[in-house]
Write a protein that binds this DNA or RNA. Structure first.
Length: 494
RNA sequence: GUCCCCAUCGUCUAGUCAGGCCUAGGACACCGCCCUUUCAAGGCGGCAACACGGGUUCAAAUCCCGUUGGGGACGCCA
């Protein structure tokens, strides 16, 4: 039984112990970083920051079939983009180096030997086919499809004979019947029967450890104090606690985070679409918004604030405020959140990331400084940078005229207004500013006896090719007198 | 199928541990109005929930039991 604290037990701190907090994020490099994984990373990162602890990044690459170094690189890039920095791990080193499980194999072998020596583990020679057959049979009989323990009581002679015959061999953990109480930082005590896990594999036939074994060994060796991970790991926690028991060491504290669900309410996965970090980045989401939105899936601010900076997140973060029930990933709210973050930052800060989203027509026509001005005009009305392509059409040279604008321009009154503004602009002495443009508009309005939309729509349509967009006075001033006049003239012949 | 977890507006949630302050608050989305040269933004308002049934109690969204529903896990994946 592990001596951890209960959630919210009186007098206990959030960390559940007095040791310096050490948490870890332990992804497998088998694909792009996914929203679910990010959320786990965020909670660990926040918890570490809040408690002045250490975040360890560990690469769980014990599945040689699926792990790739490209994935690992992409993973690190995604984490860096999100701003989730780690204290120990790849690229950083640390006292427990190496942080890649494929480079720590001797540790697992040693632990396996210890378990074998204690009689807590045993070699198994059952083939995949036999196992599969048994699984099916158990399922049909309505039993739990677990390993039946065939090799559990092999005699030394039998083992030797199998090895002689070079049968593939795995090491299995001997699960004794019992009920294990697992204190959970988020949901209180959870009692699990060992009957739900069967004798599981520790070392595979290729000599590599399985997830549960490697994670347990490493979490202990790396001095991890708290393991925060998705709720789907609950059965794994049972296995790992069993391993710790057999090894005679104290397990870390566990906290199982609620799952993130897709629209269909099943666990969020690749097939739900647009949920990997690179996709979000590529469609113009801000890392601060992604982090902000994701942390709200399962955690809430003590004052119910929602749009928060990273430091506000850290300041207020507490495991007590993490909920227990699964949450549906809502793209619409993420989009809103992104818009909020875009609007809250200075154009100059955002521009480096936003610039990549301008179409080639804009990049070719304007200098970087000019593009920054355009971005500043558009910033308030985009919720993600990918919208910049469409929104920036008004700044193309020349801007295409859309149907709505064409209709507006087709009336005789519009033509009169456009002509009048063009002339007035030409006659103006000084360089065009938003203010001077406005006063010219006022004058033309009087001359032509028009105002409001009747006055502004034709001008807007002529200068930007659309009746929607940023303040037309600012746009006209940005484009300058010559270009504005030319566009107005163009509209006359339209 | 078995075991485990969960259960407040369509969605994210506050409130639940320490029952009364809850005719249940906020946010997204949606609808309406205001502002306004447009689109946004912003402001104001509206729609909308304690899954059900039993208890316990003077009092239950809150505690207990059951039911139902949803999810997860059952791998030489992590």
């Amino acid at each position: 039984m592990i001596g951890a604290t209960l959630r919210k037990a009186p007098g206990m701190s959030d960390t559940g112990s007095n040791r310096a907090v050490r948490v870890r994020f332990a992804p497998s490099p088998t694909g792009r970083l996914h929203v679910g994984g990010v959320r786990t990373a965020i909670f660990n990162w926040l918890f570490a920051k809040k408690s002045n602890g250490t975040l360890v990044l560990r690469i769980e690459d014990t599945d040689i079939e699926r792990s790739t170094s490209e994935s690992e690189r992409a993973l690190l890039d995604d984490l860096r983009w999100l701003g989730l920095d780690w204290d120990e791990g790849p690229g950083k080193g640390g006292p427990h180096d190496p942080y890649r499980q494929s480079e720590r194999l001797s540790l697992y072998e040693k632990a396996a030997e210890e378990l074998l020596g204690k009689g807590a583990a045993y070699p198994c020679f059952c083939s995949d086919e036999e196992l599969e057959k048994k699984r099916k049979a158990a399922l049909e009989k309505g039993e739990s499809p677990h390993y039946d323990g065939t090799c559990r009581n092999l005699t030394a002679g039998e083992v030797a004979a199998r090895r002689e015959a070079q049968s593939p061999e795995v090491i299995r953990f001997k699960v004794e019947f019992g009920v294990v109480r697992i204190p959970d930082l988020i949901r209180g005590n959870v009692e699990l029967s060992t009957s739900m896990v069967g004798d599981f594999v520790l070392l595979r036939s290729n000599g590599l450890p399985t997830y549960n074994f490697a994670a347990a060994v490493d979490d202990h060796e790396m001095g991890i104090t708290h393991v925060l991970r998705g709720e789907e790991h609950l059965p794994n926690t049972l296995r790992q606690v069993l391993i710790y028991g057999a090894l005679g060491v104290e397990p870390p504290h566990f906290g199982h985070l609620p799952l993130i669900l897709g629209e269909d309410r099943s666990k969020l996965s690749k097939r739900h679409g647009a949920s990997s970090v690179d996709e979000l980045r590529d469609s113009g989401y801000l890392s601060s918004a992604v982090v902000n939105y994701l942390v709200l899936l399962g955690w809430s601010h003590s004052e119910e604030r929602e749009v928060l900076t990273v430091s506000e997140l850290i300041d207020d973060f507490a495991l007590e405020r993490v909920g227990k029930s699964a949450a549906v990933f809502d793209k619409q709210k993420l989009l809103w959140m992104n818009g909020m973050h875009i609007r809250r930052q200075a154009p100059g800060e955002l521009f480096p990331a936003a610039d990549a989203f301008f179409p080639s027509g804009i990049k070719e026509a304007y200098s970087e400084a000019k593009r920054l001005e355009i971005f500043a005009l558009l910033q308030e009305r985009v919720e993600r940078f990918s919208e910049l392509e469409e929104r920036s059409r008004a700044f193309l040279k020349p801007p295409p005229i859309d149907d709505e604008a064409r209709t507006v321009l087709s009336s005789a009154k519009s033509q009169e207004v456009v002509r009048a503004v063009a002339s007035a602009l030409e006659g103006a002495e000084e360089a065009l500013t938003p203010e001077s443009f406005k006063s010219i508009m006022k004058r033309v309005g009087k001359e032509t006896a028009t105002r409001g939309k009747d006055l502004y729509f034709p001008v807007r349509a002529a200068i930007t090719g659309s009746v929607h967009g940023p303040d037309i006075a600012k746009v006209a001033a940005f484009k300058g007198k010559a270009e504005s006049v030319a566009l107005l003239r163009r509209a006359v012949s339209t």
